[in-house]
């Protein structure tokens, strides 16, 4: 292993080690020498014994955008608490919901995870299924009055994804890396259309899927 490579590996592990070290000190609640040195050793050992693959290639963290993302996250949390509380009090058992499909732009495990997490925190939406290969989220939406609500929630989820992609300057993210937030311009890229496959009078169309393996 060349010298530069090993240096890069150490750099790659550094954030994890620092985070573990901070966590250790926080949980002990002291900064005595034993805690400091022991924590550093443990954090280093943990990072070496359980090495993590490089999960985010080509990432440039952008502190400002990350700050904006966190701000949005907290605002979303408040709004979603109010939304669901209002739905519970006002409509209760009569609340209508929907499961919608949200195509994503980003193609990266970590980013999709982050988008799914924040979507669940965002108002009115809970991710119930992630289709990693097709890059789709299936999102349960709670107070749904009409189709327009669904369209709006879909757009909100995709806006959120744009914010996540921008905060790490990801190359799969949509364009518009300027300092100004770009308007939602590009429609989601569709996978190539499949040959027409109409399930003629599919008896399972209205029932949920199960594990028993319907053959195609």
């Amino acid at each position: 292993m060349s010298r530069g490579e090993s240096f890069r590996r150490i750099l790659h592990h550094l954030p994890l080690v620092v985070w573990l070290w901070l966590l250790w000190m926080l949980l002990w609640g002291s900064t005595s020498a034993v805690v400091l040195i022991g924590g550093l050793l443990l954090a280093g050992a943990g990072a070496m014994i359980f090495p993590l693959p490089t999960v985010l290639p080509g990432v440039v963290p952008r502190p400002l955008w990350i700050g904006a993302l966190l701000f949005h996250l907290l605002a979303d949390l408040v709004r979603s608490g109010v939304t669901v509380a209002w739905a519970a009090v006002r409509h209760g058992g009569r609340t209508r919901s929907a499961i919608m499909e949200v195509p994503l732009h980003v193609d990266n495990d970590v980013l999709i995870t982050v988008v799914a997490e924040i979507t669940t925190i965002a108002p009115g939406t809970v991710v119930i299924e992630i289709d990693r290969r097709r890059r789709r989220l299936y999102v349960h939406t709670l107070p749904v009055r009409d189709l327009r609500t669904i369209v709006r929630r879909k757009k909100e989820t995709q806006d959120l994804e744009r914010r996540v992609a921008r905060s790490v300057g990801h190359r799969h993210g949509p364009p518009g890396r300027g300092p100004r937030p770009d308007p939602p311009s590009d429609p989601p890229p569709d996978p190539p259309p499949d040959p027409p496959f109409d399930p003629p009078s599919d008896p399972t169309g209205g029932t949920p899927p199960d594990h028993r393996g319907r053959r195609r």
Binding site: R96, I99, M100, I128, Y138, P199, P209, R212
Partner: peptide
Amino acid sequence: FVDELADRLARDGTP
């Protein structure tokens, strides 16, 4: 209201 996951699964034919 809608269930696009069920639609998808029905068209896939894959559980």
